[in-house]
């Protein structure tokens, strides 16, 4: 009984919740939040699949690390775009 399949289900749960919220809300900040949850849910699944009894597989760990750093860049760019759209809705 290894712990990794528990986290696979948790990650899939995060993905499902995030996709539901993406489809049903219009608030831009909540959508960026849901995209973040989607990305870290997938990161959790990827990391859980890298679990080994004695040695954790290092290549998926590097991918998840890269993914987290790319996610923060994408979030910053999306938030800048959201604020720009918000400013245009005023005028």
């Amino acid at each position: 009984m290894t712990p990794d399949f528990i986290y696979i289900f948790a990650g899939a749960g995060l993905v499902g919740l995030a996709m539901y919220r993406l489809a049903t809300r219009r608030d831009m900040l909540l959508r960026v939040l849901a995209l973040n949850f989607l990305a870290i849910g997938v990161a959790m699944i990827l990391q859980a699949s890298a679990f080994g009894e004695t040695l954790t597989d290092a290549v998926p760990q590097a991918f998840v690390l890269t993914g987290i750093v790319v996610l923060v860049g994408v979030t910053a760019a999306l938030l800048a775009l959201a604020e720009q759209i918000d400013g245009h809705d005023d005028e």
């Binding site: 712990p3 990794d4 986290y7 831009m28 900040l29 960026v32 939040l33 973040n36 870290i40 990161a43 990391q47 859980a48 890298a50 679990f51 080994g52 954790t56 760990q61 998840v64 690390l65 987290i68 750093v69 996610l71 923060v72 979030t75 910053a76 938030l79 959201a82 604020e83 918000d86």
Partner: peptide, 30 residues
């Protein structure tokens, strides 16, 4: 718990901390 401390450090610092700061900054302006 999954045996990946490097990724745990990065997620706590970048994923939770910095992304949280970015989202909080925008939550007050959008």
């Amino acid at each position: 718990r999954l045996g990946a401390p490097d990724v745990a450090l990065a997620e706590a610092a970048i994923g939770a901390g910095l992304t949280g700061a970015l989202l909080l900054r925008s939550a007050l302006r959008l």
